[in-house]
Design a protein around this nucleic acid. Structure first.
Lengths: 194, 194
DNA sequence: ACCTGAACACCGTTCAAGT
DNA sequence: ACCTGAACACCGTTCAAGT
């Protein structure tokens, strides 16, 4: 019933979905607000009723991306007890970055957080990070809260670095079988026992 | 003498330099070919005499970036013997990414290597990577060539991930003093002795 | 309250010229 | 061989309207 051809009804979420879908087969920098508007069948300036500007839309899309990533992290918790969860999280991250590299690029874009246009963005990111901290503590790789955070920063860095470098083809000059697996990287990184 | 106001004489390198300079204070996505042309005082389409398109210019800039990074890596070799060199390389990488985040973003942009417009790009990247492999072997962190490459991939991932995440403000919700130092990350990562 | 149409300044790229 | 001017299709954004 919200489709009376003039009042879209749920344009805000439709634009976010359309943008994420567009990111599946185009680079973030070739993504346009007008394109997203066309995709949902609305005029070029209709988005401005729901987003301050293009960056605000991208920030909302980024927040959605962090929530999806958190979901993936949580999806590993039931299947893997204890230390293996960290490896599963590493694999989940790499899979996510491989499947939606454009979205990941938007999630970690620079201007977004500089302007901080979207209220939920920081919280969504914090929540994903918290999963890593928790997994690091449960794995025994970190014993104090401070060490948990530092370890999580390190783990996030290896996995994020590897996943994005590989997705962007930075290791193109190496034979694929030479590359370590995400789980290897997690193991390499972890100091402490086993 | 190449400046007769009509024939620039060294427009190609002037455009590369201007682009890198522009990247110091603007995001890569807000960078335009026209702007670079204006910067060197030439018409909007003059660049097309020297570069196939905008991506070709960015690829040349990226190659320049990898050469600059390699220089920084090499600058650490004389000052630090043995294992400490790996830590110095990690610090050099982070410093580089902090000083020129826009350039780093261009260096690891996705379309660039997809099209592979610039012949020197892959070679420049390989050379930077080779420094890491060599340092990993010298440090004793890797004993076989295969292990050297895998270790270098891991080190590149941690350092690149950390440096870009920090430069883009991804750790903004953490107190800065909680963050590990680049050298810490290199030490955490290294398996093997010491 | 939500959307459209027309407009502005910008961009990448091309093409017919100019020197 | 190298550069300019004018043009085209596109973009982000704004503003006066329409429903």
């Amino acid at each position: 019933m919200p489709q009376n051809r003039y009042h879209h009804g749920s344009l805000r979420v439709a634009l976010i979905d359309a943008t994420r879908r567009l990111l599946l087969d185009r680079d973030p920098e070739s993504l346009s607000l007008r394109q997203a508007a066309r995709e949902v069948g609305v005029s070029a300036n209709a988005p401005y009723r729901h987003f301050e500007d293009k960056d605000a839309l991208l920030a909302a899309v980024a927040a959605e991306g962090f929530r999806a990533l958190t979901e993936r992290f949580r999806g590993t918790s039931s299947d893997n007890g204890g230390k293996r969860r960290l490896e599963a999280i590493g694999e989940a991250y790499c899979e996510f970055a491989t499947k939606e590299p454009g979205l990941v690029r938007v999630m970690f874009g620079p201007r977004l957080r500089a302007v901080a246009r979207h209220p939920g963005l920081d919280e969504a990111e914090r929540e994903a990070f918290a999963e890593l901290v928790q997994a690091a503590e449960e794995s025994g790789a970190a014993t104090t809260p401070e060490e948990g955070i530092r370890t999580a920063v390190g783990l996030w860095s290896v996995i994020h670095g590897f996943a994005t470098l590989r997705a962007d083809g930075a290791f193109g000059f190496l034979d694929p079988w030479m590359l370590p697996a995400p789980a290897d990287l997690v193991r390499y990184f972890r100091r402490g026992s086993t």
